[in-house]
């Protein structure tokens, strides 16, 4: 299938893009790499009147370290991260996630900001950045606001982005040297969307654990203080203290009503915990 006709605009800078977005009605879509939107356009699931192409905007392709965090422009691609073309503050965690998103040809155009804006619950960055404690700068003509990842995704394909707003930058805090990282996903085949994701950042010395159960049908379950999964206390023996029954109950409460699905999610999470401890 071919897309329904759409208009196309390539604004000269971010301000111009926001201005176009602000004046336009609801049937405008921002496009960057187009790796999520393209298939939907081609299937005529989405029929915008106008596409605003932000892929060329230099402001969205900048990467810099600001104090203890890395600030990435929204149009940095998965391949940019995979190949190490940008600095890393996550001790390789982001590189590892990026290299396993879809396929190389997709990673060469797909962007981190685009993936987040699309808010597919099965997408890697949605879960991984939540676990890393990332924040986003959302920008509109009215100004900027900062939203934590765990508040950004509100449902399946539904983010906290308001009309006229786009994801401008992703702020990734440096991962402490004492933190352990684990990221496991279950896909039926390489490059496929995940059916279960476990993303964990556990710092036994700080007794903290950020735990994400992703690729459920709604927003991921983000536990910023996940001590309950480890018997109420995060310590060096967290791997042995991980309590599958608690994870199971959390999933049930979140509406994952099918036992087999819960079983897979719990075990994927368990593996992510084990990977962190390894």
């Amino acid at each position: 299938m071919k897309p329904a006709p759409f208009g196309y605009e390539r604004p000269r800078d971010l301000q111009a893009a926001l201005a176009v977005l602000a004046e336009a009605d609801a049937s405008v879509k921002i496009i960057a790499g187009g790796q999520s939107l393209g298939p939907m356009l081609n299937l005529r699931l989405v029929e915008p009147e106008l596409l605003i192409d932000i892929a060329g905007l230099a402001e969205l392709k900048q990467v810099e370290r600001q104090g203890d965090e890395l600030v990435l422009g929204a149009c940095v691609t998965h391949a940019d991260i995979e190949d190490g073309r940008i600095p890393d503050v996550t001790r390789g965690a982001m590189q590892g996630v990026a290299g396993n998103i879809a396929y190389r040809a997709v990673r060469n155009r797909g962007t981190i900001g685009g993936s987040l804006s699309h808010a597919d619950p099965a997408a890697d960055w949605v879960s991984a950045l939540s676990a890393l404690g990332a924040k986003l700068t959302l920008r509109s003509l009215a100004g900027s606001r900062i939203v934590a990842m765990e508040d950004f995704i509100v449902g399946a394909l539904e983010s906290a982005l308001r009309a006229g707003e786009i994801v401008k930058t992703v702020h990734v805090p440096a991962m402490p040297a004492s933190a352990h990282w684990g990221y496991v996903k279950s896909c039926r085949k390489t490059g496929e969307f995940a059916h279960a994701i476990g993303a964990v950042m556990i710092d036994p010395s700080a007794a903290t654990a950020r735990i994400v159960i992703g690729a459920i049908d709604s927003a991921p379950i983000v536990m910023t203080d996940a001590a309950e999964l480890f018997g109420g206390r995060v310590a060096g023996d967290y791997k042995d203290r991980f309590d599958s029954r608690v994870a199971e109950a959390i999933l049930a409460r979140a509406g994952v009503s099918d036992a087999a699905h819960r079983h897979i999610h719990v075990n994927v999470l368990k593996r992510a915990v084990r990977e962190a401890a390894a």
Partner: peptide, 14 residues
């Protein structure tokens, strides 16, 4: 390792 790519952002754009 990175192919021939040196700049950031979606290939083909910008």
């Amino acid at each position: 390792p990175g192919g021939e790519r040196k700049i950031l952002g979606p290939v083909g754009s910008g």
